[in-house]
């Protein structure tokens, strides 16, 4: 069973529906115990980092995510969920879960013709192979909606990049964690494929 972490972060049912469409059983939960019993966890998110972290802490999900990460449960971060696996977010100077060293930063100093938030379909370039990116080719497009992006400290943690004025990390991971800045649940067949692979993933990078 896949648990989808619910922390009042918007439209979680779209992740649940996308999982169902590829025959993967998933359920939204805000109960830390349920999270710890799950085989896999999807940590999604739309919204602001400070309110997301406040909500995760109030519900005990913040600690539960830390335990699940330490126990080796396969984890998939999406959008704000991805930004929160780093140590800190510039958005409201918010401390994150710190699973991976690095920061979440805002798009800054872009050509004024480039709009922020970065909304729409954009291409990924694969930085290093990962089982969850199997079949994804350089230039394949995914759907993005964000004004901040993850900036892992270690190059080894970057699995894909995307360009919007600046080349940023659009997929990162380490061990049992994989996380995307784009929304697989809104990215057509390419996104559904990623969710399908996550449902079978062993939780290692090779």
């Amino acid at each position: 069973m896949i648990a989808i972490v619910d922390y009042d972060a918007g439209n979680l049912r779209s992740v649940e529906r996308a999982c169902r469409a590829v025959g993967v059983e998933a359920a939204v939960t805000r109960d830390p115990e349920t999270l710890l019993r799950a085989d896999r966890i999807i940590f999604p998110g739309v919204g602001a980092a400070p309110s997301a972290v406040a909500s995760l802490r109030a519900s005990g999900l913040f600690e539960a995510l830390g335990e699940a990460w330490a126990a080796g449960t396969p984890l998939l971060g999406i959008c704000v969920g991805t930004q929160l696996v780093l140590e800190r977010s510039e958005e409201g100077d918010t401390p994150g879960l710190g699973f991976i060293e690095g920061q979440t930063v805002r798009f800054a100093g872009l050509d004024p013709a480039l709009k922020i938030p970065h909304i729409g379909w954009n291409a990924v370039e694969i930085a290093r192979p990962h089982p969850l990116l199997a079949g994804v080719r350089d230039g394949d497009e995914f759907y993005f909606v964000h004004a901040y992006y993850p900036k892992p400290a270690r190059e080894d943690d970057v699995y894909a990049t995307t360009c919007h004025g600046v080349r940023f990390c659009s997929a990162l991971g380490r061990g049992n964690l994989f996380a995307t800045q784009f929304h697989p649940e809104k990215s057509g067949r390419f996104g559904l494929g990623l969710l399908e692979r996550f449902a079978k993933w062993s939780g290692t990078a090779c």
Binding site: R13, S14, R17, A21, Y143, E185, K186, S187, G191, L192
Partner: peptide, 8 residues
Amino acid sequence: VASQIFIP
């Protein structure tokens, strides 16, 4: 629509 179509 939301259960069949996975674009915005």
